[in-house]
Design a protein around this nucleic acid. Sequence first.
DNA 1: TTTAGCACTCAAGAGGATAGAGTGCTAACA
DNA 2: TGTTAGCACTCTATCCTCTTGAGTGCTAAA
Lengths: 353, 353
Amino acid sequence: MKSTAKEVRALDDRKLKILSAVVDEYIVTGEPVGSKAIMKYVNTSSATIRNEMAELEKQGYLEQPHTSAGRVPTYNGYRLYVDRLVKTNPLSKEEKAMLDGMILTDDLTEEGLVQSVSAALAELTNCAAVVSTSVPKFSVITKVEVIPTGKRMYVLLLITSSGSIKNKVCRLEFDLSSEQLEFFENFMRENLEGVSIDSLSDEMLKKLESAMGTYLLTLSPFVTGIYELSKEMAQQSVVVEGERNLLTCRDFDQNEIIRFLDNKEELKRILDQSFSGLHVMFSDETDSFVIGNSSIITSPFSKGGKTAGHLGIIGPMRLDYSKIIPYVEYFTQKISDLISDDYEDEEDGFDGK
Amino acid sequence: MKSTAKEVRALDDRKLKILSAVVDEYIVTGEPVGSKAIMKYVNTSSATIRNEMAELEKQGYLEQPHTSAGRVPTYNGYRLYVDRLVKTNPLSKEEKAMLDGMILTDDLTEEGLVQSVSAALAELTNCAAVVSTSVPKFSVITKVEVIPTGKRMYVLLLITSSGSIKNKVCRLEFDLSSEQLEFFENFMRENLEGVSIDSLSDEMLKKLESAMGTYLLTLSPFVTGIYELSKEMAQQSVVVEGERNLLTCRDFDQNEIIRFLDNKEELKRILDQSFSGLHVMFSDETDSFVIGNSSIITSPFSKGGKTAGHLGIIGPMRLDYSKIIPYVEYFTQKISDLISDDYEDEEDGFDGK
DNA sequence: TTTAGCACTCAAGAGGATAGAGTGCTAACA
DNA sequence: TGTTAGCACTCTATCCTCTTGAGTGCTAAA
């Protein structure tokens, strides 16, 4: 609701302490928190705490499931807690080593790394890990190749500067002469190499086709094939790892989870608004959130200094933010470091040996 | 239990009719079936039916959840029903048209087709569709290609006679000379083309490596890369479509389903024993079955006359077999027809025009 | 061999009592 | 004026009992 400056000012130190205590306790127990339980955290009587809690409720930070129950944090309560109250301790040496140990490093490809990290994150947090990999804005086509592979069968190959490869089988009505093949490869080299993936539009396609002259008659399936490949590449992808953690989480409504897992478009849209740093979202915030009572923590990772995607978790609001936030931060940093190594290596350097 | 010839002989016509009626009724209602409900199917009094049911229970075809409840089919009951009693009507023209209409035919690749059919099957049956695609035994390597794509970056490409393509990025310590590249391509062409995918063993790898002489020093990552690609290709794949139908099915134990979906190895193993025709399995049969109370119906589909995989459904035992069995049969036949068209086209023919 | 009739069983649901966790309010206190 | 002890009150969760009704097995007659 309206969290005006006045209201926030009205939150003295003790109120904040109590709010924080309620959230901390609720995160652990999952049950509405009563005034007595808070006495462990604050040095006053339960009566005083009750008074304070009643006020926190009026201000919209807490709520009661029913009259004679304890308090539960509201969306605003969580928001305040995460933004201003939660204490995230930097990871110790041992913790970092533990996290590192959970990542398989035998698969050195970018996807392999990200997949391994997200599995670790899901395992660690008992949530589902989410990864969205955006198409790097600076990604351009570096190679178009056609490989004959059978009677009238050709494999189209598209490679970009960011290292993605896609292929597609194309069947033609006729076999091509080597002259035709050569023409196509040259034509593609001249017209597509260096072109950025997401700039390949319908119009561009039309222009290309008309520039091909009579070759178009036989080669047109290749052109549309390349076009489709580029479209596939330009698509942002979202992967959810550890879905079982959502299904077994009793904070959620089963049916909602099933619906969510069945259709990840919604999630895609949410992760699309790429945020610059670590970001915590709650399900009440945007009503487009599919899963009620959920929260999403994401952080971007980068490749060669440019954002390459986002990694995070989706779980219940009742999360141990103080632990999970550093995990997400550490892992995204880790990914950035590892794939940027690769990247620099690819582009400029030569790493001695 | 022991279903000896004597016992089976003891099943006169009326008993079979009653068993069939119990299964039919139970499939619809999901509730234990009482003697009165059977009166709709058989022209005798409920008392007689009760006597018969008591005997069917003694023989192991029915059971009671508790004393004063109706009867439910046992595993043996289902087995007998499916093997000898169920009446599967051949599909009508309209039904076939309806099924055809559910298949998207704009993606003409094999995977696209199979995916579309399995989605339709899942939708239609409210079960999960399962597809296992085996590596065709006759599939051989037709092409190995290396494409330079950046500083010390190369794409390995492996193509087989059955039309699968896989690629892998390989990073070397040094750039290769064109002479080295040429050597590798020739070497691979001579040694691997025509070799069947699943015959590529560790020993073969060793032999190849030793045959490469000094080239091995720089090219060894390529060899292991190719080896890994072939291993990936040789792997039988299992895909489950429509998982949500399992999760929302109240005949199952949620946790068991979640465990099942998390680990499809078990399913893979079951589908691995490729059966020659349509096959119905029940969860009691092999104790390796992950999901209790489930049944699997599969049928093979073929490509150019040779088995290419299996398509089917996994759902509760309480299935409308009389409808679903024809669906599975029709769809696998359909797939066989469509991809075999392709295949013949690829290998021998020329379709005019 | 079949069937009507009857006593019996058992699960599921309705209703009622109880316990206990937690509250708000009042009045006393520092 | 802020804090606290005390108390009446509220509401859920749980347990127990009772009832209902579907369905059975058995017996005796047709």
